[in-house]
Structures are given as structure tokens and as C-alpha cells.
Simulated scan of single mutants.
Amino acid sequence: MTLVVNQQDDTVVGVGNERDGCAYLRVSGLTVSFQQLKLLYKVIFGICLFMLALVMCFMAYDWWEQGGMPDKWDWLDAADTLYAFALMGLTFFCGLMLVVEVVSWLIRRNSVNAARFVFARQMLTLFKQRCGKKAYIQEVN
């Protein structure tokens, strides 16, 4: 076992298992792990898709209430509405991703705890490379 220890309070921040080459990193405090960011992006993207599906359901309900088949103008109106909503959702998604990335970068840059997290990640990455394995590090709470 190779331990990465925080010398300020003698807590174990990371563990490298030399037998199987696995590395584990403990996430704590304001530090946001890359897995948490990926999960956040997936949730935001899912919410945007859900909203688009909801708009499609409302349009289909309006067509059903009218009775009969929708004509050419209904289809064109639906395409225009979906295009505008998809563009708005994509803009919202990208803007929110930008804000999250900037905030997490500022936290990693200005927080001492986050700096220790980044340093421990680099140490464990070097450990994995020395073992000849991929630089994948399991992040645990």
C-alpha cells in the first residue's frame, strides 16, 4: 500500500494498492470530483431533454384537441417551436456548464483543501503510471 497523507491533520487522502495497481482518492470539503461534475452534466442534459419532450407532448395534446390530422402549417409551426426550444435548451446547458466549470476551477485554484486534492490526484496518477496501468483513479467519499 502507498498512502498519500495530508501532513496538516494526518488524514489519509489517497491510497495506492501495489498488488493490483488500483488507486483511490478521498473527496472531501469544497472539492468537486470529476465524477461529480460528469454526473451533474448528465442530470442537466437529462432535464433539458425532459423539457423538450414535455413541449412535444403539449403540442401533440393541442393537435389531439383540434381533432383530425395536423396539416402542413401545424408541422411547420411545431418544427419552428421545437427548433427554438432546442436552441434555448442548448444555450442554457452550455451556459450552466461554463458557470460550473469556472466555479470549480476557482475553487480548485483558491482553496487550500482543493490544492491538496489536486496534488494527491497527481501523486496517485504518477503511482498508476509507475505501475504501468491506466491513470484512472477511483474517487470515494
Results as ranks from 00 to 15, higher is better:
Arg108Gly: 04
Asp10Tyr: 05
Arg121Ser: 06
Met51Ile: 08
Val32Arg: 07
Leu98Gly: 10
Leu39Thr: 11
Ala60His: 04
Phe117His: 09
Leu106Tyr: 07
Asn113Leu: 13
Thr31Leu: 01
Cys94Ala: 15
Arg116Leu: 10
Ser33Ile: 02
Asp71Leu: 09
Asp77Glu: 10
Asp77Ile: 01
Ser104Tyr: 02
Glu65Ile: 08
Asn6Met: 00
Cys48Lys: 10
Arg130Gln: 11
Leu126Cys: 12
Tyr136Ser: 06
Ala120Phe: 06
Leu87Asp: 08
Ala23Asp: 03
Ile47Arg: 14
Phe92Ser: 04
Arg130Phe: 05
Ala78His: 05
Met1Glu: 10
Leu54Thr: 13
Trp64Leu: 04
Lys38Asn: 09
Gly68Lys: 01
Ala23Arg: 04
Lys128Arg: 15
Lys72Val: 03
Ile107Ala: 01
Tyr83Leu: 15
Thr11Asp: 04
Gln36Phe: 02
Gly67Gln: 04
Ala78Phe: 14
Leu40Arg: 14
Ala114Cys: 11
Val43Gln: 11
Asp9Gly: 02
Ser104Ala: 12
Ile44Gly: 01
Met51His: 07
Val13Asp: 01
Gly46Leu: 09
Gly46Thr: 08
Met88Phe: 15
Gln7Cys: 03
Met1Asn: 08
Tyr83Asp: 13
Met97Lys: 13
Gly95Thr: 08
Asp20Met: 06
Leu52Phe: 06
Asp74Lys: 04
Cys22Met: 09
Ser104Asn: 15
Gly29Cys: 08
Cys48Gly: 02
Leu49Ser: 13
Ala86Glu: 06
Leu3Cys: 06
Ser33Cys: 08
Met69Thr: 14
Gly21Ser: 11
Val100Gln: 07
Tyr83Asn: 14
Gly16Met: 02
Trp73Asp: 15
Met97Ile: 03
Arg130Pro: 00
Thr11Val: 08
Val99Asn: 05
Val103Ser: 01
Ser111His: 03
Cys94Leu: 15
Leu82Arg: 06
Gly89Thr: 09
Lys38Glu: 11
Leu90Asn: 03
Tyr41Trp: 12
Ile47Val: 14
Tyr61Asp: 07
Arg109Leu: 13
Gly95Arg: 05
Val118Trp: 03
Leu40Met: 06
Asp74Pro: 00
Thr125Pro: 00
Gln35Met: 08
Leu52Ser: 04
Ser104Met: 07
Asn110Phe: 15
Trp64Lys: 05
Arg26Cys: 06
Arg116Gly: 05
